[in-house]
Structure formats: structure tokens, C-alpha cells
Design a protein around this nucleic acid. Structure first.
Lengths: 210, 210
DNA sequence: AAAAGAAAGTTAAAAAATTAACAATCTATA
DNA sequence: TATAGATTGTTAATTTTTTAACTTTCTTTT
């Protein structure tokens, strides 16, 4: 799988959506799809679909289209979803609880196998059947569970500290749900997801359009 | 507030982050900040900060910087956060439950005041103190509660139907947590947040870099 | 077997976003 | 009061991303 040259971030997000449509199509017995069909289902243009795919190779047949199952498999491979990933969740508050129970992760190959918190009242208890460990055990447990990804679901004030601990434990990819910027090493992939900010995109546009 | 010309989507997201830093700075007693400081704290370049702000006006003083409190207020106004917004949550499953309890919304001016579901076992019960209504009552309750924004936290298969109902109820902004594209009218702002896809950005980059 | 239609892959053009450079202006200091 | 330093707002250049147009190839039909 080539990642020699820079791919637009948005392309990755669209590939994810394409793959979901392709799975659905295949399950419905639609064995061949066109860029047009993919585009319609995912809300983009056919040219965009072809361009996105062209970054990675030639997956279709001219004059015909793409084989749904085949393209699905290719995209999943491109996204790194050819295998399962073990994920650590830090923060057993409301958000952490929700994420631990969210079915959507498992469906896409992500297994949250350990949860960490600093609150003595939470440690030892379970969330969605997964035991909550003290944050200090992160390194040890991460090794045992083969953790490669981490989710930060703690208050903004604790986010950087948690990120540091995750990096110390050798975790290479981090999703940060805290509404704050955190600094990571060069070899660590970081992505921030600010739920409130999502609503703010809406209010920005709606503010004075009434 | 001008929105005559197109602002990069990413700018809105950064403004949100700037505002959080500014609030923090002000609370710490830092009354003046430079684009450099904002940039450092939020992980962008100073030029980017100034450019982002320049879309909306002149908020600083050359040779000096920005007044933290003042700039904070301006940005909040720009984002439409000069007032509170009433939000309806559709879907009382794991994700819905989490979102209903998430403190981060209220802090930024969003109040989830009613929750909807189709599951008879859930209707009538409460989540985070908020009653769960049958989806059919959406229109009625939305009117009573002055709902302007909607959050879709239902399975992908039901997302479009829910979106249609939200639009019917006059809701103008929608966050869709279902991993599927949905179609909305022209005068409705839509934003998709795919939690699993966030992890996929990481795995895409990590896949073969071990 | 040729022609028409469909659809991918590719190249070029256009648009959008970011980065960098610079001119204007404020504050502090000599 | 002039000068140096700081820092904004703005303009220009660069880079990135999207859109459109075109070429190739496959399938079907006449």
C-alpha cells in the first residue's frame, strides 16, 4: 500500500464513507457499481470518487465500473482495516462510558480492551464489561493488551498529561475528545474531535439567517 | 456579523479553539495576547490566526496584540454563541445517552431539552433528567421547546427518516452521528460526525509504518 | 464486424486554503 | 522627540484540493 505522496485528509474521510456504501451495496446483491452511483450515495461528485481512488491505484474497469466487493476490500485495506486494532480508552466519565459502549467501533475493527481513570471510585469497576484500571497501569496493560491506539476522554485540563502517558506507553495514534490542543511527538498520529465545536459549525451559519 | 463571502470550514473549527484558549487566558489574568501566543496554544501558525480573524474584521492593535476578553467575545459572537441554543436529541441508545450527559455542550451554550426514540421501552423514561418522547411528537415538542438544532444518534438505517422528521419540524441545523450520508434541504445546515472514521484516519497513517 | 454508449483513468484548469512577506502603527526607551 | 522593537492587517505567492474535460477501454447492439 503506497503512502508515498500526500493524500488529502478529506479523501480518507470519503473513503470511509465509500466503503460503507459498498458494503451495503454488496449485501443488497449489487455486484457492480459506477463512480456515479457511489457519488450519489455518499453526496460527492463522480469525478471526486474517481480522483480519490486514483491516488491508490486502478480498481475499476473502463466502460463497466467497480466490483463492489473487490473495491470494498481494497478500500478497507487502504484504511488499514485489514485487521483489528486494540484501543485504550482513558477517561471513564460520561463520554468515556458512551464510547466504551458504542457499537460502531467494533463493527469497523476497533476493540476497546482497557479503560483507565484516576478516580478511585471508578477504578476496579467495569464499563461495558471492561475493567477500569488506574492510569498508572497504562504502560503495563497496554503492553499486555497489544494496544496501539488511544482515546482521550478526560477534561481539557488533564488531556496533555494523558497524551504524554499514552506516548510513553508506545501508543502511536491518539483521538483527543478534550476541547484543547495537545502536543505529541512526530511519530504519533493525533486527531482532535470536539463535539461542541461540531454544533458551532451549525450555529455559525445559522446565527443571523433567520 | 458578515457572512457575505465563503469562509473556510477549517477556520470555524479554529475559531472555536481560539475562543477556548482566550477564555483560559483571560481567567489566568492575561489581558493581552498576540497571534503568536494564540498560535502556539492552539497548534497553528501566527499567520493563520491573523488570517482567520481578518475574515471578520480588525480585532487587535498593531504593535500590541489582542485584548483577550474582547477577542473572546467577538469570536463567540461570530460563532453564533452570543446566546443559548435549544437542541433535540434523537436516539436514546448508547451514543444518545452519552451525548445527553456530555457536559461540554452546556458549557458552550447548547441545551439538550428533549430526547426522542421509537423504542417503547425507552419512551417515558429519562436520560440525564430529560424525558424521552416518541419520535412522532417531534414536531409538537420542538415547537414548545424552541428547538433549532437536532442531533441524530440512531442507526444508519434510520438516519434519513429522522432527518426528514427534523426538517419537517423546522429544525435548521443537524449533526448526524450515523455513519451514512443523508440528504437535507437547501436551508438546512448538516454536519456528519463519524466516530469510527476518526479512528480510521489514524489507522490509515499507521497501517504500514511499523 | 462496426458503431454507439458507458464508464474508468488521466490530465489540465480552476478554485480554495495556507503560508510568507511586508507595510502600517503602537509602545517603550534613549 | 526620534528610534527600535513588537505585532497587526493586508497583499502576494505558494500549495493543496476540487472540478472539468478528455482519452481509453469495455459491452452491447445493429
Amino acid at each position: 500500500m503506497f503512502k508515498k505522496f500526500k493524500i488529502p485528509d478529506a479523501t480518507i474521510g470519503r473513503l470511509s464513507l465509500y466503503s460503507r456504501y459498498l458494503k451495503e451495496a454488496e449485501e443488497k446483491g449489487i455486484s457492480t457499481v459506477s463512480s456515479q452511483q457511489i457519488a450519489k450515495a455518499t453526496g460527492v461528485t463522480p469525478a471526486q470518487v474517481r480522483k480519490d481512488l486514483a491516488y491508490f491505484g486502478e480498481f475499476g474497469t473502463r466502460g463497466v465500473g467497480y466490483n463492489s466487493k473487490e473495491l470494498y476490500n481494497y478500500i478497507m485495506k487502504i484504511l488499514g482495516l485489514g485487521r483489528r486494532w486494540q484501543v485504550a480508552l482513558v477517561g471513564a466519565g460520561n463520554l468515556g462510558k458512551a464510547l466504551s459502549q458504542y457499537k460502531g467501533f467494533s463493527e469497523r475493527g476497533f476493540d476497546i480492551t482497557c479503560i483507565f481513570d484516576t478516580d478511585p471510585n471508578k477504578i476496579g469497576k467495569k464499563l461495558a464489561g471492561i475493567e477500569i484500571y488506574p492510569l498508572d497501569l497504562l504502560g503495563e496493560k497496554a503492553r499486555i493488551h497489544n494496544i496501539e491506539l488511544g482515546i482521550i476522554a478526560v477534561p481539557a485540563s488533564a488531556a496533555q498529561e494523558v497524551a504524554d502517558k499514552l506516548m510513553e506507553a508506545g501508543i502511536r495514534g491518539i483521538i483527543n475528545f478534550a476541547p484543547v490542543n495537545i502536543n505529541t511527538g512526530e511519530n504519533v498520529m493525533l486527531r482532535r474531535v470536539d463535539l461542541a465545536a461540531q454544533l458551532e459549525y451549525l450555529t455559525y451559519y445559522l446565527e443571523d439567517t433567520r
